[in-house]
């Protein structure tokens, strides 16, 4: 269920960052805007692993995959479909 990953991400962002869920769109800039920094990305990869059971392999731990809400959801969906 693709929507589940998006909902999880929205909740995580609301809890862990300054971003409010009402502002979220798929093209919301997360890296360029500074909502996510590299340490937050580390937190997110670990949260995703423990909460969703999705392991993000190292080759996917690259800036492009964490640039926007859409790019993160797309990666999670792809890895889940795996």
């Amino acid at each position: 269920m693709p929507a589940a990953n998006r909902d999880y991400l929205a909740a995580w962002l609301a809890a862990e960052t300054d971003l409010s869920v009402t502002e979220l769109t798929d093209t919301s800039e997360l890296l360029a805007s500074g909502v996510l920094d590299s340490l937050k990305i580390m937190d997110l990869t670990m949260a995703v692993e423990s909460d969703l059971g999705i392991t993000i392999p190292l080759e996917d731990v690259i800036g492009e995959n964490f640039a926007t809400v859409g790019s993160i959801v797309q990666m999670l969906d792809r890895l889940q479909a795996g």
Binding site: S38, M42, I62
Partner: peptide, 12 residues
């Protein structure tokens, strides 16, 4: 080439 992956290895 993989600064975030390196950070993950080195830090976690």
């Amino acid at each position: 080439e993989f600064p975030l992956a390196f950070l993950k290895l080195a830090h976690y």
